Amino acid sequence: MAAGGDHGSPDSYRSPLASRYASPEMCFVFSDRYKFRTWRQLWLWLAEAEQTLGLPITDEQIQEMKSNLENIDFKMAAEEEKRLRHDVMAHVHTFGHCCPKAAGIIHLGATSCYVGDNTDLIILRNALDLLLPKLARVISRLADFAKERASLPTLGFTHFQPAQLTTVGKRCCLWIQDLCMDLQNLKRVRDDLRFRGVKGTTGTQASFLQLFEGDDHKVEQLDKMVTEKAGFKRAFIITGQTYTRKVDIEVLSVLASLGASVHKICTDIRLLANLKEMEEPFEKQQIGSSAMPYKRNPMRSERCCSLARHLMTLVMDPLQTASVQWFERTLDDSANRRICLAEAFLTADTILNTLQNISEGLVVYPKVIERRIRQELPFMATENIIMAMVKAGGSRQDCHEKIRVLSQQAASVVKQEGGDNDLIERIQVDAYFSPIHSQLDHLLDPSSFTGRASQQVQRFLEEEVYPLLKPYESVMKVKAELCL
Rank of each mutant, 00 (worst) to 15 (best):
D223Q: 11
G259P: 03
F160V: 03
P378H: 01
D191G: 07
F236T: 07
H97K: 14
A431F: 07
Q161P: 00
F379L: 06
I72Q: 10
D398Q: 14
Y294E: 00
I237R: 10
L362Q: 06
I436E: 04
E48S: 07
L174M: 15
R188G: 07
F95N: 08
A163E: 04
K284C: 14
V429I: 12
S395Y: 07
K224L: 13
P435H: 08
L440D: 04
P471D: 15
F379K: 04
S434T: 14
L42S: 04
Q177E: 13
W43F: 08
V92P: 00
G419A: 10
A322L: 15
G104C: 14
E213Q: 14
G197V: 01
P281M: 12
G394I: 06
A260P: 05
R196E: 12
Y432G: 09
R337S: 01
L255Q: 08
R338G: 03
D333H: 05
K391S: 13
R309D: 03
K402A: 09
E220K: 08
W326Q: 07
D59T: 12
D430P: 05
L406S: 06
R337V: 03
E481H: 15
M292F: 04
F145D: 15
F145P: 00
V413F: 11
N68I: 06
V324M: 10
E228F: 08
S306H: 01
K224A: 14
E80D: 14
K367W: 06
C98E: 12
L307S: 10
Q356F: 02
S12G: 15
K229I: 02
Q63G: 11
D422F: 11
Q409C: 09
C305P: 02
T382C: 10
T167L: 01
A18V: 13
D6P: 07
E81F: 00
K367E: 07
S448D: 14
V138Y: 12
R37P: 00
L341D: 12
V368F: 03
I105D: 07
M65E: 00
K402S: 05
Q416F: 14
A453S: 14
T350Y: 14
Q210Y: 01
A2D: 10
Q164K: 00
A230T: 05
H107N: 01
L42D: 00
K82V: 15
V414E: 02
Y243K: 05
F157D: 00
R371V: 02
D117E: 05
R338M: 03
G418S: 04
Q456Y: 03
E60C: 12
T321V: 11
G419R: 14
A136K: 10
I403A: 05
A235Y: 14
A103F: 09
L275A: 13
T201I: 03
Q439I: 11
F433L: 07
S289E: 02
L377R: 02
